[in-house]
Design a protein around this nucleic acid. Structure first.
Length: 613
DNA sequence: GCAAGGTC
């Protein structure tokens, strides 16, 4: 018997279906000489400090550098404290029995670094010696699965991938556990002051933006607005220049030849620029873009959206949600017309689904090369039935985005009218000629200011127009906005892009900080630590968060570059570079950051006393 | 009591 192990039940079911195996047992499916079993993500984790004899949180223990890491069954928190997760233990027992029985293991965890680690941790924890081969597929259509099984790779081909995954895991433990204890201890051991490769740069981003806003000095400036009349329509134009003082603006205002001053047609059209613009449809959603949209439209937190999506996924209404890809492959695309047809009677989207059924689909979201372990989020087409309002809202975002993504471009015409009346004035307008994908939600373009979205009347060069009104506008420069969950998620995704060092920037280009599956929990961790809080839609630091930021802001652990540097080395390890060298560097860094924090954290003692009181 | 990573 051969046993196939997947990362999660849904994938195991999919594989079993392709093989025609359908005898369901507790924790596995069998048939046709194969057994399909699964993990639930990471079943095992690196054992906590006490498993190496580091009891309590004491400076003498630091730095904790286990000679050899141990694995422990994943824990959950219950009212009786932290215990082994019984479901995980049970599944491990199932896997153990199957591994003992089998002649060969086929590794079908997700095709990536963590997928490899999930399997290897199980394999080594169970002290299994059975031979294994690797299934490496990036799409789960029947054809891709069949091809993948015909083309299984030797398990050892992925040894270096495992080494890089293992290094990632141990390095995060070493730096995170030691830095956390060092800071907490030196601040008086009254509160958990956690630090980590991902959470600390995230905190730093929130704090630095907050400080920027707090220290921002707004500057007042002035504009002159005129109201013009062409036949029966009115529109507004704004001075081409901004003025620093009210006096300057008043001079310009005075010079305007308006009706009140007796000028029948005091404005002359200097220039009319009309441009046709094609606006392509948005890409399909990945988890992050959906979390951002749900936060903007409905105010859901990233964590809530992930939870809702997980429920929809378990209800088989949407495809795998924790994806970082906004694309699908050609195989999935082939099934899209049928999928769209299933929404022809949908109360909200039925009409657009029908429209789409009769036109050529836009292929902007179709690119097999940009599909990583999972493709973009799509509805499955299963009948949804009655859903709670939040599930319905998120489901509609998935369905609506699918219709948008395969829709035609939106055709717009933008117009810029330049006028002279004393000074120069401009009016910007946009007219949607053909809604295309924008017909799905009929939303306005939220990135644009209202005044740029005005509908302007047709005017000709050198035509003269009535100025029916004029005014001075007092404006203020604005700071960048505080982070919301939506903008923070975006920033986490893209934060590697402005790193100066070219190699580090390259190493982070596909990753950013954290992963789609973990970003929501990073935000929740910072809130749980009392480092940040939600205020309306914004995320703002607490006094504690700001104090921690002050201590670590110049250190490597607070920089996104640290992840870039690690990614670069991990990529090299994957390509065969020395593991020992990287481990030695991490041990060195662990020692130095621990020493620094053991001294630096004393500055935080007063604030932890206050927090405790 | 602690990281980041995965997922029911």
């Amino acid at each position: 018997m051969k046993v196939i192990i997947a990362e999660k039940p849904s994938v195991a079911r999919e594989l079993a279906k392709v093989f025609g195996a359908n005898t369901k047992k507790a924790g596995y499916i069998e048939g046709k000489g194969f057994t399909f079993t699964w993990a639930f993500g990471h079943l095992l984790q690196l054992a906590p400090p006490q498993d190496y004899g580091f009891y309590g949180w004491r400076a003498q223990n630091l730095p904790m550098l286990p000679a050899k890491f141990k694995l422990a069954v994943r824990k959950i928190k219950t009212k009786d404290g932290v215990v082994e997760d019984p479901a995980v233990r049970k599944q491990l027992d199932v896997i153990k029995a199957l591994f003992e029985e089998c002649t060969e293991i086929i590794v079908a965890t997700d095709a990536g670094r963590e997928g490899e680690l999930i399997f290897r941790y199980i394999y080594y924890y169970l002290k299994c010696k059975k031979p294994f081969r690797r299934l490496w597929i990036s799409s789960q259509t029947d054809q891709a699965i069949k091809d993948g099984f015909r083309n299984l790779k030797p398990g050892t081909d992925y040894d270096t991938l495992f080494y890089s995954a293992h290094c990632r895991s141990e390095s995060d433990w070493l730096v995170g556990m030691n830095a956390t204890q060092a800071l907490s201890i030196s601040a008086g051991n009254r509160a958990v002051l956690s630090l980590g490769r991902v959470q600390t740069p995230t905190l730093a981003m929130i704090c630095s933006r907050f400080n920027e806003v707090k220290n921002f000095v707004p500057e007042t400036y002035f504009q002159v607005a005129i109201q013009l009349k062409k036949d029966e329509s009115l529109f507004r134009a704004i001075s081409a220049k901004n003025y620093k003082t009210k006096e300057e603006a008043e001079e310009v205002l005075e010079a305007v030849l308006d009706l009140a001053r007796g000028y029948e047609k005091g404005a002359r059209v200097e220039k009319v620029e009309a441009k046709a613009k094609k606006e392509p449809p948005p890409l399909l959603h990945d988890l992050s873009s959906l979390q951002q949209e749900a936060n903007k439209k409905k105010g859901y937190t990233a964590d809530q959206t992930l939870g809702i999506l997980q429920q929809l996924y378990e209800g088989k209404l949407v495809t795998y949600p924790r994806t970082g890809s906004r694309y699908i492959g050609d195989d999935i695309f082939a099934s899209v017309p049928d999928l769209i047809a299933k929404f022809k009677d949908h109360p909200l989207f039925g009409k657009q689904a029908q429209v789409l059924s009769s036109q050529k689909l836009n292929k902007r979201s179709v690119n097999a090369k940009k599909v990583t372990d999972h493709h973009a989020i799509l509805p499955t087409g299963e009948p949804a039935g009655h859903l709670s309002s939040d599930r319905q809202a998120v489901y509609d975002m998935v369905v609506g985005r699918m219709l948008e993504a395969f829709h035609e471009e939106c055709l717009k015409e933008t117009t810029k009218i330049t006028l002279v009346s004393g000074a120069l004035f401009t009016a910007n307008g946009t007219v949607i000629k053909q809604a295309g994908w924008r017909a799905v939600f009929n939303d306005k373009d939220e990135d644009k200011k209202d005044e740029d979205n005005a509908t302007l009347p047709a005017v000709l060069k050198d035509e003269t127009l009535v100025i029916s009104n004029k005014a001075i506008l007092e404006r203020q420069t604005k700071p960048k906005p505080l982070y919301t969950e939506a903008t923070l998620l975006k920033a986490l995704e893209t934060c590697g892009k402005d790193i100066e060092d070219e190699e580090l920037r390259y190493a982070m280009k596909d990753s950013g900080l954290g992963t789609p599956a973990t970003r929501a929990s990073i935000i929740e961790t910072l809130i749980k630590r009392d480092y940040i809080k939600r205020e309306k839609k914004s995320l703002i630091p607490t006094d504690m968060g700001l104090a921690v930021y002050d201590v670590v802001k110049t250190k490597k652990i607070a920089q996104a570059e640290l992840t870039g540097a690690w990614e670069k080395r991990l990529e090299e390890i994957k390509a065969g570079a020395s593991v020992a060298d990287f481990k030695a560097e991490i041990a060195e860094y662990t020692k130095s950051i621990t020493q620094e924090l053991l001294k630096a954290g004393t500055a935080l003692a007063p604030i932890t006393v206050k927090a405790k009181a």
